[in-house]
Simulated assay, not measured.
Amino acid sequence: MTPDPYPPPEFTLTVQAADARTLRLAIHGYLDYDTSDEFTPAVDEVLDAHAERHGPVLRHLHLDWADLTAFDSSGLSALLALRRHTHPAGITLHLHHQPTYFSRLLEVTGVMGHLTQHAHGTGSPEAALP
């Protein structure tokens, strides 16, 4: 049997660093149509483990995109779903080392500011602000 000339795209997520209020994750490989359904459960698993260990005190989720290979509208949808999950919990997303094509898609769709908008903690005085 000959090897498949088009192997399935791969996606992995690794924890780079963590403390009670900050978590740093690296995204590797593809975040596209074929893998975007893996992104949300993978991040949720890390967030759940963090909350188990530290409680609901996480405030900053840093995502490192340096090893991203591909990103499309399905990946963008998964990233927006992550924002919908984290923002109400008071967790601000920070995006680092974005490849040009990633930044361009965020720019063209106008979501960069939305994704990285500062989240107010649910128990903080800022949460009461309109």
Rank of each mutant, 00 (worst) to 15 (best):
T2L: 11
D4S: 13
P7H: 09
E10R: 09
F11W: 06
A18T: 15
A20V: 05
G29N: 07
L31P: 12
Y33T: 14
D34L: 02
T35C: 03
D37L: 13
D37R: 14
D44T: 11
L47D: 02
L47R: 07
A49S: 13
A49D: 13
A51E: 15
E52S: 06
E52V: 04
G55N: 03
P56M: 03
R59Y: 02
R59W: 03
H60F: 08
L61D: 03
L63T: 01
W65G: 00
W65L: 15
L68D: 00
D72C: 13
D72V: 12
S73E: 08
S77I: 02
A78H: 08
L80Q: 05
A81C: 04
L82W: 14
L82M: 14
L82F: 09
R84L: 05
H87E: 03
T92H: 05
L95R: 00
H96W: 10
P99E: 00
T100R: 13
R104S: 10
L105M: 12
L105I: 05
E107V: 11
V108C: 04
G110A: 07
V111M: 07
G113Q: 15
L115H: 01
Q117V: 13
H118C: 02
A119R: 00
P125W: 06
P125S: 09
A127L: 05
